[in-house]
Design a binder for these strands. Structure first.
Lengths: 345, 345
DNA sequence: TTTAGCACTCAACAAGAATGAATGCTAAGG
DNA sequence: CCTTAGCATTCATTCTTGTTGAGTGCTAAA
């Protein structure tokens, strides 16, 4: 299908910006691409695209950069869907090996994805999305310490011991926990990080040094989340120019990557292929693309790629689609095989 | 013991710099501490200290900062050796709990250390220092891929599969591996990262696309090292002012923390308490302090704290000493107990 | 509808000037 | 002989100012 002139210009802008990380002006486009119209025309089109909310300016007289909406449009209508040959080759190698567990295969595929896209990749453990919190309990051990225990409906237990503030009243703590339990029971694990915030004021009401207790909660929950998410290729993000010079941004992003917020993201995702551009809570610079992965035994997992808003969506999505598709085919094949063997016997 | 005037000034400078991260001048000292002599005297002393190599200037007319040697002197002669009460309290809590494995206790102690010092803490697995490499083998799987396998004298195996460069000759690869094996056999795991560098030229001689193979080696070795080192509180480093604004430095340090170089550091350490200030290979900004930990069953481990050169050595060392001492006492107690129980039966 | 031409905007860079915290040195005082 | 006041000097830091150039929007002609 032929692209309209406007779409063509948008496509060039998005792709050029993804390559250079610099605002794109009308001159730049003329110089780098063979276009049959002048820079003034481009400027007019860019104005229209800006009015449509697909482009943005960093300042009055700068070039344009894509807005979230612009990326979204690019992803939906303009991207090339080309799969890197090296990914095909490498995945081939992984899948042709014998005697590997399913988790091993997924892990290796995830590494390949991360390597090839230069993004961080995240794998969500099977069924972690459905898992629900059954109870939180705080058990005082003695006058100085207590343990907080999380239990989920699938029987997973996580705990954390912490030093008890001195001036704490045991009854207050018990009452407080009752309230919190009522509030959180049945919450899917993936939504817990969001709800944890709501806990804070309750603790503040009941307990003087609430922060110690809250920190223990967070810690326990972090262990929890860590068990469910496998992260690869964090380092890749270091090399993205938008993070290289801004230590503060880098810090925020690394913290986010290892915090339960990431888990929270998955709770929102259920489709085959989800693209989440730049509108993570508090973090405009990060995008997440993820794909559902059907595993043997009716289980379900998600593989995601995390990177700057200015990531190469075409590359990332194509790779992700290809890999999950191949994995699913592979899983089908082995489950067919094991059925056959079952019959023979 | 009374400190000499010179030592007193050095002590103040080191401690002030640790607190503020800013070069310390004679004025600043006068204003912040009660000193019975004038700024001119301080300047004279500072000159002497600089000549002795204990202080440095960042530029001709700046205040002074401690040199590595200055920190070393501070650590050896001037520090306060005061243990934070909160550490005592928290450790108490950990040790008073029942039914914990030794690794669990060490892990928790390490977390406390990291939390209290705001540094990253690292635990080296027992006996990892003595472990030696037995062989490296590359096994071609088919025409496209091969696996590299590391085996140690204690039977630990690590492997990594990689895509084989197309134009590779199998005999060349085999010859090459023979050579590498001869070179590396018996190398303690901790020294492997250093020796890996030496492998590179050999690979270059034999194999055209040597980099792919080398990367696979490194990957396998990284898994290897990762198994042996447990790292906590990486995040703490983010908040150190020296790393906050310099994204590049932060990046280097995080990469170092997750690279086998860290393991290499431990190979040099054998004493009860080792302090390694700022002279890590290529990384002047990082200091490591570590302590030997005798575990039940004649095993030995090390706990380390990693942070910027400008870390609070007093705090870090005191905490480290205290924790290892308490842990060793605790281990003795439980091994005594189990002996007694043995007798009774 | 397209495009050439032009005035205008503004980040980024560079060069200079002012500021002030620090130094080293000298000479006077205990 | 050791200490310290006084002073010229150094140099990072900050602020100001000017210049450059990529980019825009608008107008008028093709």
């Amino acid at each position: 299908m032929e692209l309209s002139r406007r779409d063509l210009i948008l496509k060039h802008i998005v792709e050029h910006f993804i390559k250079t990380a610099l605002p794109v002006g009308s001159q730049t486009l003329i110089q780098n691409y063979e276009l049959s119209f002048s820079s003034a025309t481009i400027r007019n089109e860019m104005l229209a695209l800006e009015n449509a909310g697909l482009l943005e300016k960093t300042h009055t007289s700068s070039g344009r950069i894509p807005s979230s909406k612009g990326y979204q449009y690019y992803v939906d209508h303009l991207r090339n869907k080309s799969v890197d040959e090296r990914i095909k080759q490498q995945l081939q190698v992984i899948l042709s090996q014998k005697a590997q567990s399913v988790t091993e295969i997924i892990q290796k595929s995830s590494e390949i994805l991360s390597n090839m896209t230069k993004l961080a990749s995240v794998v969500l453990g099977p069924n972690a999305q459905q898992e629900k919190l059954m109870s939180i309990q705080v058990t005082p051990l003695d006058n100085n310490s207590a343990t907080v225990v999380f239990i989920t409906d699938s029987g997973y237990v996580e705990n954390k011991t912490f030093v008890l503030p001195k001036n704490i009243e045991k009854e207050a703590l018990a009452d407080c926990m009752n309230l919190i339990n009522k509030r959180l029971k049945g919450t899917p694990v993936s939504e817990l990080s969001a709800k944890m915030e709501a806990i804070k004021p309750i603790l503040e009401d009941f307990i003087a040094e609430h922060d110690v207790v809250y920190q223990a909660f967070i810690q326990a929950f972090l262990n929890f989340a860590g068990e469910r998410l496998k992260l690869y290729g964090k380092h890749s993000l270091f090399n993205q120019p938008e993070f290289a010079h801004d230590g503060d941004k880098l810090r925020k992003i690394l913290t986010l990557l290892e915090s339960p917020k990431l888990l929270h993201h998955f709770s929102k995702s259920s489709g085959n292929l989800e693209v989440n551009i730049g509108d993570q809570d508090q973090n405009q610079d990060l995008s997440i693309v993820s794909s559902k992965l059907r595993m043997p035994g009716e289980k379900e997992s998600r593989i995601a790629l995390v990177g700057p808003t200015r990531m190469d969506y075409d590359r990332a999505l194509s790779a992700l689609e290809y890999v999950t598709e191949m994995l699913e085919k592979y899983f089908e094949k082995i489950s067919d095989k094991s059925k056959e063997e079952g019959k023979r016997k």
